[in-house]
């Protein structure tokens, strides 16, 4: 009984459910923007890198290395508490989107790039030899194969980064963890944290299952 009272207190649940639901909505749209923006930016950077121009490649590599090396929390704190000193004040959600989207882009760029370099040279030659331009060969031949190879690591990265929306709790973003931990303080019950865990499961479990389907769809006999 003590276990149930601690983690599944019905009264506490009922009281904080509305707050938590709106926090779920916040987490969802933040995650959506971060994933879409991060993957799109990562893809664009990897494509630019194929041009093989040093003045494009160098900044891309620096960005990807920094994005992967720095702990996101550090960057979030710098953006949120440091930038106002320069007169740039960004809202909590915006900081979260920029930083986490950027970090995802850094990883995604490396994953797409690894995929592109793994596409056999003969594929490029077949495309160019049949009169396709560099861009056509990239988009119609190399990229689909690179993306397919990248799906499992990309899904992992996207999941890892969206779970980091919980870092928004340190800069006042009313996402799931922020709302549930303040509810925990007020109620003195661990139940809101249980609710947070269940909320995260409800969001991410379907995504994991969906990604399995995606991997299957993009596989082909070689």
């Amino acid at each position: 009984m003590r276990f149930l009272d601690t983690f599944f207190d019905g009264a506490v649940m009922a009281k904080y459910l509305p707050d938590l639901l709106s926090a779920i909505v916040t987490t969802l749209w933040l995650s959506g923007l971060i994933v879409v923006g991060g993957l799109a930016l990562g893809l664009a950077l990897a494509c630019l890198r194929t041009l093989g121009r040093w003045y494009l490649t160098m900044p891309i590599v620096v960005f990807a290395d920094l994005g992967r090396a720095l702990p996101p929390l550090v960057v979030i704190l710098i953006f949120y508490f440091g930038l106002p000193g320069l007169g740039i004040s960004l809202s909590g959600p915006l900081v979260l989107i920029l930083v986490l989207g950027g970090v995802l882009a850094a990883f995604a760029e490396e994953i797409f790039w690894a995929g592109l370099t793994a596409v056999p040279k003969g594929q490029w030659e077949a495309g160019r030899a049949t009169g396709l331009s560099f861009a056509r060969t990239l988009f119609d031949i190399a990229l689909p194969q690179a993306v397919r190879m990248g799906i499992p690591p990309l899904v992992n990265r996207a999941l890892a980064i969206t779970k980091m929306t919980a870092l928004g709790s340190v800069i006042g973003v009313k996402e799931i963890l922020a709302v549930s931990s303040s509810a925990q303080s007020f109620s003195g019950s661990a139940t809101p944290l249980t609710m947070a865990a269940l909320a995260y499961l409800a969001i991410f479990l379907p995504v994991v299952i969906l990604s399995r389907g995606l991997e299957k769809r993009y596989s082909w006999a070689v």
Binding site: P120, A126, R128, A129, Q145, A221
Partner: peptide
């Protein structure tokens, strides 16, 4: 120009996808 020059490779290089 390459459209007018067909090429067949040792390794086929069909697009697997």
């Amino acid at each position: 120009m390459r459209l007018k020059i067909g090429m067949v490779f040792q390794g086929f290089h069909l697009y697997p996808h």
